[in-house]
């Protein structure tokens, strides 16, 4: 077993653990935003490490796999956060506000921005 295969196996393990945690988070978390953060942050990391792991496993037989894996990782690094951002924003626009237990009035800073925009539109 070469060093690359061990690295690859470790990456695969990390990736699958994070994917599992992401799935668990979607199941356990209370509201949309918490679920989104479990479901997208964890799976971004999980998916990236899975694909890198596959690239490392194959790097000795065919180095082209590693290049492809890196391209896919870059693609995921772009697309996953953007899509989760769009989801969260869409939920906010539909007036599903996050659950806030803290007494601090300024916790949800985005709400003001949103309401100001609304007023400008109405005016």
């Amino acid at each position: 077993m070469s060093i690359f295969e061990i690295i690859g196996a470790v990456f695969l393990l990390i990736g699958s653990i994070f994917l599992f945690l992401g799935g668990l988070g979607i199941f356990r978390m209370p509201d949309v935003y918490n679920r989104l953060q479990a479901g997208t942050k964890a799976t971004t990391l999980g998916g990236m490490s899975l694909i890198l792991g596959v690239g490392f496993l194959m790097v000795e037989t065919n180095w082209a796999w590693m290049v492809k894996a890196i391209i896919i990782v870059i693609f995921i690094a772009f697309s996953n956060p953007i899509s989760s951002h769009a989801l969260a924003r869409a939920m906010y626009k539909r007036k599903r506000y996050p659950i806030i237990t803290s007494k601090d009035e300024n916790m949800d800073a985005y709400r003001e921005v949103n309401e100001n925009e609304k007023k400008e539109e109405d005016a």
Binding site: S79, H85, A86
Partner: peptide, 11 residues
């Protein structure tokens, strides 16, 4: 939002 716009332009 702007993030989505520039992101989709890249993708």
């Amino acid at each position: 939002s702007g993030i989505v716009r520039s992101g989709s332009k890249l993708l």
